[in-house]
């Protein structure tokens, strides 16, 4: 199973679009946070005591980023040409894009945690 999954993951295409998946999820989560707070405070009439919707949204965002990061991590370790992997070959290009995606996933993961932290501490709309 693992081998099959591993094989499937490393066959996925790596492009400029997959590179920006993790930060796009961060951006979507950020927009979600902003709208969630604005609509609760301006329209619903107060801060929810248990922000379940927000927690779910945040966990989904973290899972998506982690998923993109893990796939990219596996892709960035596809065996191929010799180190330092800076040649103009298919595998080095893929490793580069995949590794950059891993890094972006890490940054985006931290970014989502940063964004979500205030909801743990603040309890009203003042």
């Amino acid at each position: 199973m693992k081998r099959g999954l591993h094989g499937m993951v490393t066959r996925l295409k790596v492009t400029l679009w997959t590179l920006i998946v993790p930060p796009t999820v961060w951006a979507a989560h950020f927009l979600f946070s902003y709208l969630w707070a604005a609509i609760h405070c301006a329209k619903v009439g107060g801060f929810p005591r248990l922000p379940i919707l927000y927690a779910v949204g945040t966990i989904v965002a973290l899972l998506l980023i982690a998923g993109a990061g893990i796939i990219a991590h596996l892709q960035s370790r596809v065996p191929g040409d010799t180190p330092p992997h800076e040649e103009g070959t298919d595998s080095d290009r893929m490793r580069f894009l995949a590794f950059s995606t891993v890094l972006l996933a890490a940054l985006s993961f931290v970014g989502v945690l940063f964004t979500a932290a205030p909801v743990l501490f603040l309890t009203d709309c003042r």
Partner: peptide, 15 residues
Amino acid sequence: LPKISLAFFSAASEA
């Protein structure tokens, strides 16, 4: 603006 909104932007500014 509500502090919660400010906090989101403050977090991103630190990130």
